[in-house]
């Protein structure tokens, strides 16, 4: 998404189920996307009631055709609207699927919560909220993490990859691992699928030729309650070099 024009198109896409363009959605959620939109940021939603907070940040973004520019976000003084928690405001920068997002978060917000509720990236699911089931696995700097036990603050400045980043458009060519899941009927209800794929993605990057035993061990942290394990294991094995 280096091209600004493409990024603009991306911003005008409707966020599933919200009825809003992505730009409107993020603005409502207190987040902005890096690049052209940075100057218009307004961190209104995540600030405590009646209090004020001033935030500034400098960010280097790629502004198309390989041109790199450094942008300093204007100092923004935010007065709380009374719609949010008492937690102090904290600015984070999340690079998700190659796109920079900026926003103010409550210290208790998890990465999973921000991905789903603030960035609208719903492929990452919430299963247990304490690192037991693995359906929320995403890659953080190429390592699989359970995003329900990673605070958004911890993820700031890190590169996050979610299922949406593999083949972001309906009709686009699927990632070979995604296609392998179809070929092997490696899902039933689909709720754990994003976690399974992202975990497997990390495994195959770390070890391109895993044995079945290694696949089982690596995937053991992501539960499938429908019992589609056999298809999942076969799908991952089919992608071993």
């Amino acid at each position: 998404m280096a091209d600004l024009e493409e990024q603009e198109k991306f911003m005008e896409k409707k966020v599933e189920g919200s009825g809003l363009s992505r730009r409107e959605f993020l603005r409502n959620a207190g987040f902005v996307v890096g690049g052209a939109s940075l100057g218009s940021l307004a961190f209104l939603n995540a600030c405590s009631s009646g209090s004020t907070s001033t935030v500034t940040e400098t960010k280097t973004v790629t502004a198309g055709a390989g041109t790199t520019v450094t942008v300093t976000a204007p100092a923004v003084t935010v007065t709380g609207t009374g719609t949010t928690s008492t937690a102090p405001a904290n600015l984070v920068n999340l690079n998700v699927n190659g796109i920079d997002y900026w926003g103010v978060v409550s210290p208790e917000w998890t990465l999973a919560y921000v991905l789903r509720e603030k960035l609208g990236l719903i492929a990452t699911k919430r299963g247990c909220d304490w690192g037991d089931c693995g359906v929320c696995v995403v890659l953080m700097d190429s390592r699989p993490v359970m995003s329900c036990v990673v605070l958004a603050l911890e993820a700031s400045g890190k590169k996050i990859e979610t299922l949406e980043g593999l083949a972001p458009k309906i009709g686009a060519t699927l990632d070979p691992l995604q296609q392998a899941f179809i070929n092997n009927d490696a899902m039933q209800c689909g709720f754990c699928t994003a976690g399974q794929i992202m975990t497997a993605k990390a495994l195959l990057a770390f070890k391109p030729s895993p044995t079945v035993a290694e696949i089982k061990e690596f995937l053991a942290g992501t539960i499938c309650r429908c019992g589609a394990y056999m298809g999942i294991i076969a799908a991952v094995k089919s992608q071993a070099k």
Binding site: V15, E16, G17, S18, L20, F25, N28, A29, R116, E117, K118, G120, L121, I122, A123, T124, K125, R126, T162, L163, E164, A167, P168, I170, L174, Q178, F181, I182, M187, G190, F191, T193, A194, I197
Partner: peptide, 14 residues
């Protein structure tokens, strides 16, 4: 596989 199947809590984000 595209993460587009919407479950109840995926609705009305934001």
């Amino acid at each position: 596989l595209l993460g587009k199947m919407d479950y109840a809590c995926d609705r009305l984000p934001g």
